[in-house]
Amino acid sequence: MMNNKEFIAELSGKTGLSQKETAQYASQLVADIAMQLEEENVLSIAGFGTFEVKKKLERVVVNPSTKQRMLVPPKLVVSFKPTASLKDKANGK
């Protein structure tokens, strides 16, 4: 488990920037990513993975306990697909 604080600290150590700068850049980068995704661009990061916005159609769901049926509206969701190399790393190869 690594939270944002630890992440920034570690990143600052790697890049040699101050933690404050790192946090600032990181939020800038994240905002940039968010902006790209908002425009429905596919964001493919070599060696990491692909961020993509996918459309989910509206659908009917049933609450199993009450049998209440509901119409869930269509939505846009962010999906992430890791690259093969990252998958391999995850599986300890």
Binding site: M1, K14, L29, V30, G47
Partner: peptide, 19 residues
Amino acid sequence: FFELIALKVVEDKVVKVKS
């Protein structure tokens, strides 16, 4: 940025990046 996420997600199982 991305290398660290990739590394830490394998090591620490969970990586949270603000926003």
